[in-house]
Design a protein around this nucleic acid. Structure first.
Lengths: 338, 338
DNA sequence: CTGAAAGCGCTAACAT
DNA sequence: ATGTTAGCGCTTTCAG
């Protein structure tokens, strides 16, 4: 039996030791079906004794479903996604599902490749970021029959269930607040060459509200680099040294905005008198800054948690319920920057 | 064949359509063995036409090895681990391996449970954080025969191969630099109730160097909370309002130290005259702060990348090479805080 | 409550 | 260069 080092114990080995059939071991391990407690104990003892570890590949193959959940995110370089992933992981772990994942770097093509590849693990669910996916991706997912949860955004048509917030509304609320504070001339600062579609929706909402109120979008600066504090600082410096200063800067997220605050702190630029600012996300570290950023607080962890809970729930493929948008909302956190 | 919606196409279906045997399809898909390019094309066309997706559960079961790599990390709440995970993911993706992961929240017991559970996926490798693991964990790993890469730390005995840096040396180098700058009275600020063992090793190195030079560790404050900028700010405020100010504060990481900088910026405390500081990690955002933090720059992404590359490498279980510590080094980044 | 038989989809090991 | 056979370890299905 213990041939070489390869021979990992199987249910047959446990069964032999416990003096029962292999099927009984299977029932004990999976907790399904009725087993006398006497037999159950004997099996558990035997399993422990020989160090039995179940083989989920075999289980998944036979039962045509694995307890793996595929998770496809743009990047781990943005706290937003790591927090969402924490929520997903916590929800899954509670049901002994495990996340298998991949990163798209905001590319739809990479997303498709990853989805295809991850589907080969026959996951019982898949988490995608956002609502925009290529037709190929949609087709592959539909053909596989996996359950899907889309996260972060609810402005659009979900494949099945989406958990998030209205990015457009967030942009509108931010703009309205800035307008209420008397600001009229704005510059937008973004990153990632605009590949972040959620940021684009926020900008659209912001722009619309500003224009409707008779304000001006002086310009929209979008860096090619990923968003970061240092890039925000650099772009802010550029704007403030330009010929025409805006009243306020709308940053596509908190990291960029925090960079703006840092620039002003370093150069002695007064906020919000000389320049007002707003960000997006409500990251925890903002509370530690000397100046409180006005931003939109988003329920990232909760979004991940809810998505994970849905996919890990025992319920069968829900009786093809209609696509659903779950709005987890957001909150305007008014700080000192506008 | 297309019975109901359940019937996902198999290699047999592709084989029928392409007019070859199922084994030939297998060879085309896995790229192993010689296949005439004419047949290869026919198979690929057929696969595409019926939307074939390979079943890696079956492949893994049969070949007794899955192209999954288990990754067990303490938390995603610390940039250090998300960057390492990015490196791991990038390395794995390049070889079409996928990470399956779990979070321990710095608990050895949870680590054991996760390792046991992840082993049931028959991963071909496993990544663990640090060198300290319970005996149970070590036994389970040894019994499974899985390849192991430990990351971040190299002060201790690795199970197999560890990629990281000497945490103790990092503490010593930091202490030496601060001593050279004339500081003598220190307070240490840590978090997580000391559950982060790497931080403990840095502190040990720091403390030793300080004492040998005749300096004083006035106290060691360790918060129960996870490390964060806000907690660093709070603790710094507490220290500076105390009866006896130290010359300098040694923070267990950059987030805490950045909080210290924020406090001083907000309260007008002069750095390093009134209080000197040093951190650890060299996180990217530090460059954006108005005051440059003196810290130790660590190769987190690279550590993850190297670990991923080792585990995803095609090489067979290396001829039981002796355990190995791979020192990826660190760099003292001298800023303006000491 | 427990067992026996069958087979999930693939690849290893031989054939040819 | 391609085909045949067997079986990985488990769960489904059907008996009892």
């Amino acid at each position: 039996m213990t041939d070489r080092k390869t021979a990992r114990p199987t249910m047959d080995d446990v069964a032999d030791l416990a003096g029962v059939s292999q099927m009984t071991v299977s029932r004990v391990m999976s907790g399904k079906g009725y087993i006398s407690s006497e037999v159950r104990d004997r099996v558990n003892v035997a399993a422990l004794e020989i160090g039995y570890v179940q083989n989920r590949l075999a289980r998944g193959l036979r039962s045509e479903k694995s307890s793996l959940i595929a998770v496809v995110l743009p990047t781990l370089g943005n706290t937003v996604f790591t927090e969402a992933l924490s929520g997903i992981t916590d929800a899954l772990t509670a049901q002994s599902f495990r996340p298998v994942f991949g990163l798209t770097e905001y590319s739809e093509d990479r997303e498709y490749e990853l989805v295809r590849d991850l589907l080969s693990w026959r996951p019982s669910g898949i988490v995608l970021a956002g609502l925009e996916h290529s037709d190929q991706t949609r087709k592959a997912i539909a053909a596989s029959g996996v359950r899907v949860a889309e996260i972060m955004d609810i402005d659009g048509e979900p494949i099945s269930t989406a958990f998030g917030l209205s990015q457009k509304a967030a942009g509108q609320v931010t703009a309205q607040h800035m307008l209420d504070k008397g600001h009229r001339r704005f510059i937008y600062v973004g990153s990632q060459s605009g590949a972040d579609l959620r940021a684009g929706k926020r900008l659209a909402g912001f722009r619309q509200t500003v224009r409707e109120a008779g304000g001006t979008m002086m310009s929209e600066l979008i860096s090619a680099l990923p968003s970061s504090m240092i890039e925000g600082r650099r772009m802010t410096a550029e704007i403030l040294s330009g010929p025409q200063r805006p009243d306020a800067i709308y940053y596509s997220n908190d990291d960029l905005a925090a960079g703006g605050i840092m620039h002003c702190l370093a150069e002695g630029v007064s906020i919000p008198d000389e320049i007002a600012m707003a960000g997006f996300n409500g990251l925890p570290y903002l509370d530690a800054l000397p100046i409180q950023l006005t931003t939109i607080k988003t329920p990232r962890y909760d979004i991940g948690l809810k998505a994970g809970q849905l996919l890990a729930s025992q319920s069968e493929i829900r009786p093809n319920a209609a696509p659903q948008l779950v709005d987890l909302g957001f909150e305007l956190n008014i700080g000192q920057t506008c």
